[in-house]
Nucleic acid binder design. Structure first.
Lengths: 229, 229
DNA sequence: TGGCGCGTTATGTCTAGACTTATAGCCCGC
DNA sequence: GCGGGCTATAAGTCTAGACATAACGCGCCA
């Protein structure tokens, strides 16, 4: 008796994993469960809400709650600052700015960020090192239309990512992972061989509908992103 | 007055993005906020709890709540069944089993899944097609020690992933993303060229501490995993 | 038979209050 | 000055009850 929301959550979870409640089946409503577990409806509600957030069950007003037939498993990845990522591994972080130009946005970038014709962007190429070894190559484009102050920022000491996080704390983003090939230039930056596979993250961010930046991050060969769920 | 938890959440969010509350600074406690917003403490609590889940703020009993200095952004990816993934794109899904053997677990697999010596595993090579084109190559190893019934299952019609989801509904998993190269054999399966970069997902799963399966999924060149956050 | 409207119902949210729990930071003794 | 123990505080959780809201699916009507 007197179950906590965690008790309720894990008990329901085990009923599902043990197969007592089959996929697609309707689970008792909150009032019944509150009676069964001897707790208030709010407690059951919290347990069920978390299970729904985890993609285990599906809830609809009036229709009730059912076990998802094909459970949507989701993995969460932390997207830390490179510096943190490296320092958390116990390695020494070093940053360097390789190139810096101000130019009109190329067509592919305008399409991606939905920029108008003639938009000017700041283009930066940076490297991040862990214990002196190349770790990540950063190909960064910043929209000067929304962030004109970026033109005056000094990116030789602090990376554009950290500068952006401090300047535009939160924003909408689209992130995608893919595998690419190191061309000769990228291979040189990463001290790897031409034709090596590189793990790539691309991210576009907006703030209140305004495009801020697009970045392509290429990791040294062998990099993996791992998480448990 | 009479703010909902969403009102509170978005107002606090905007205070942070606008810089009213600087990173690292202490946020008023729940009772004060409840007074400010004219709502119950539970309402403020829910708003704050969600912000903490999102990695925006950090909460500690007695110490209070503060804005995270370097916000941990996290991205969530849905990990659907391949069939769903393909059908959701509007393409026709086709599956085929290419190889099936029962063998002692190789050393690398024993290390990865923490298996004892002499463990037997079922090794499957499968292909998933979208509109007839190779989409995903599946290199699957199932631990027959925990799932002996897998040896009798018919994997020629339904893929091992779907069979597993139906048999062992939920489990702990470790998932990792990386970039690899297509060797001649894999390139043949994926109808691509030797040396093409392939996006790779590896997943190991356990159930109540028992290793169930390890799988290496290789996608056709050009594949991307995308999400918004 | 088929389409529309609406009452019923399960979830969603809020409240005021009480109790629990972790712990920051003060105070005291060494 | 330093370490250990105590306490006040803020978050964490629960309750009983109320009202809000979405929408399922029955029944009515064409």
């Amino acid at each position: 008796m007197k179950a906590t929301y965690k008790d309720v959550k894990s008990d329901i979870m085990s009923k599902i994993t043990k197969g007592d409640w089959a996929p697609g089946s309707l689970v008792p409503n909150e009032i019944e469960l509150a009676g069964i577990y001897g707790c208030a409806r709010a407690t059951v509600n919290r347990a069920m809400r978390e299970l729904a957030d985890d993609g285990i069950i599906e809830r609809r007003r009036k229709a009730g709650t059912r076990v998802r037939s094909s459970p949507i498993r989701q993995a969460r990845f932390d997207i830390p600052l490179v510096r943190r990522e490296i320092e958390d591994k116990g390695a020494e972080y070093r940053y360097s700015l390789a190139e810096r130009t101000v130019e009109p946005a190329p067509d592919w970038l305008r399409a991606r960020l939905k920029l108008g014709v003639g938009s000017k962007v700041l283009h930066l190429i940076c490297m991040h090192y862990a214990d002196g070894d190349p770790y990540q190559h950063e190909d960064r484009w910043i929209n000067l239309g929304t962030l004109p102050q970026a033109e005056d920022a000094d990116f030789t000491q602090v990376g554009p990512n950290e500068w952006l996080v401090a300047t535009v704390p939160f924003s909408d983003a689209e992130i995608s992972f893919s595998a690419g090939l190191a061309g000769p230039k990228l291979a040189d930056y990463l001290a790897s061989k031409d034709g090596d596979p590189v793990f790539t993250i691309e991210r576009s961010t907006w703030w209140e509908g305004q495009a801020i930046t697009y970045v392509k991050l290429s990791f040294r060969p062998g990099h993996r992103m791992t998480t448990r769920y």
